[in-house]
Write a protein that binds this DNA or RNA. Structure first.
Lengths: 175, 175
DNA sequence: ATCATATGTTTTATATGTCAAACACAAGGA
DNA sequence: TCCTTGTGTTTGACATATAAAACATATGAT
């Protein structure tokens, strides 16, 4: 009940996640320090927006500023960045290397959901990728075999996933 | 560049998707017709919020109202509902039956991302599930074998996914 | 030292999505 | 008929996230 409200209850918004990622990115060449304008340029939004958004990130304890108004990730901010980056890598790897989704589309999908999937699901997905890539030669061949798997949906109730109504087809329409 | 803005550019918001799902759900017993209060009750938000939100859905051509202010999905609205439901089933099945994520967590994760993943990724994931469930006995055993796979991360650069920095561990921390 | 440019903040505005409260109208019950 | 209750809408408020523009303060070139 009210599962759908979990979306808004998320502590880390998409916007916040990308501000933190941008700070990390910009700061790489400056010992972790980033300027508001560079963050704004990285995100392609205005300095004003960044200035306002940083207030919330400071209040959350994810970023700090020094006397010269330079911005830096705190330990917890950096940990969020690491977790989000890990989830992104795992999702992109799964989408491209296992499912065979085009890299550009995989990047968009990963970016949309990287901050939303739970640690538990992210961890299991990472383990699954490791499983597929593990020493067992049969495992290694599996993903590539799927990439050649293109059976048409039987639409006959024999498909164990669809159970009568073809979910593959259903996926193609709408909007 | 600006991949991260795709999130906001999404035509179907989380809120809109769940309004459509609620209308579909409530309407099941009334030939597709739903009342504002029943939609509000189903979503656990106020009638006022639903009333306002329906304006946007009408403008999008996803719902219609009759003279008695009863609400109904249009053909395109119904198609969106079908697509979202298909994506949810596929995601939940993957999370629980393949990855072994607890059902309650899988439900939350699926709900958060069901409206965000592309048709292309959804379709490939459905095909992947069909592949795993397909006649080949080796395939059938695969997923269940993963559920027993619990190797510790070597943290030695030998893991083909992690490549030195353990993504599995990284997934556990933050916030 | 001065002046132009760059930078960061603030203000005003917009859009979405929510609540609470007031309002109007309808349907029934007494 | 009157009155209560239920229903749908509107209004005012708030939170987030954005832009644009005005503003104050740096920074740097000459």
């Amino acid at each position: 009940m009210d599962t759908w409200k979990e979306f808004e209850a998320n502590e880390l918004t998409h916007s916040a996640a990308h501000h933190l990622l941008a700070i990390h990115d910009v700061g790489l060449e400056y010992g972790g320090w980033a300027r508001v304008s560079d963050i704004a340029r990285a995100l392609n939004i205005t300095r004003g927006s960044v200035s306002i958004n940083l207030r919330a990130l400071k209040k959350r304890g994810w970023v700090e500023t020094d006397a010269h108004r330079l911005v830096k990730l705190t330990a917890s901010g950096l940990q969020i960045v690491r977790t989000v980056m890990a989830k992104r890598v795992v999702l992109e790897t799964f989408f491209t290397d296992v499912l065979g989704v085009p890299r550009s589309q995989a990047a968009i999908d990963s970016c949309k959901i990287e901050h939303l999937i739970s640690h538990s699901t992210g961890e299991r997905l990472a383990l699954f990728l490791r499983f597929l890539a593990s020493g067992d030669a049969a495992n290694a061949a599996r993903a590539s075999r799927f990439r050649r798997f293109h059976a048409k949906c039987p639409k006959s109730g024999t498909c164990e996933v669809c159970k009568g109504q073809c979910l593959v087809d259903e996926m193609k329409r709408a909007i």
